[in-house]
Nucleic acid binder design. Sequence first.
DNA 1: AATAATTCTAACTTTTTAGTGAGTACCTAA
DNA 2: TTAGGTACTCACTAAAAAGTTAGAATTATT
Lengths: 110, 110
Amino acid sequence: MEKKLKTHPAYDERCPVRASLALLSGKWTLMILFQINKNTVRYGELKRSVTGISEKMLIQELNMLVENKLVSKKVYPQIPPKVEYQLTELGLKTLPIVDQLAEFGLENLV
Amino acid sequence: MEKKLKTHPAYDERCPVRASLALLSGKWTLMILFQINKNTVRYGELKRSVTGISEKMLIQELNMLVENKLVSKKVYPQIPPKVEYQLTELGLKTLPIVDQLAEFGLENLV
DNA sequence: AATAATTCTAACTTTTTAGTGAGTACCTAA
DNA sequence: TTAGGTACTCACTAAAAAGTTAGAATTATT
């Protein structure tokens, strides 16, 4: 269920680039962080804004991001349920990475 | 053999973040770019500096980086063979991404 | 004649990641 | 009473990425 952040004995487990990639290089991870951005976002909103993602992946990624403290989650005890997601301090620090990737892609790839 | 840079009809193929990730999110990709850095590096040197990588992955990644014009390759017609790799202009532009990831990892993860 | 060094290639297996499709519980509105 | 909206969970499958092992061509060295 959660992302393992696996390391491999053969290469440096403490490599900061590796560590960041282990956390962020999933197919949907940065998209989700970017969509949440500086807002407070409900699950359903995310489902709509991260186009193409399956519910399984969305929840799986959200859970892993919460576990890794990039995202915080607030559950309202209501029916029908309401759950809000937000970037933590740590999560906000990933936004410059997204920017950098976006800039590179925009200038050179797309 | 080469990385497909696959897209999925369901989500925006023109998303610059996706495009960058498709190119760079491989397990070894950024490591290789970082090791080449501003130098001219032989295959064997890379093999030693990117610790843990298999030859298959190294060549596979190098080929895909050359195909995608992030890396240039110079073959010397010698025996035993000598091949040098270098970052292109485009390849050099990925170094800030590595820096950003390194910084994030260093400050928050490692 | 055998060994080592160079840069790869190719076939195959395993592991990891992502996708699919169904179902749950509760309430509201038609 | 049926359908729709909420936020999920679960079992299974498929696809992608990475790992393993072996070997090739050439020359110099031992």
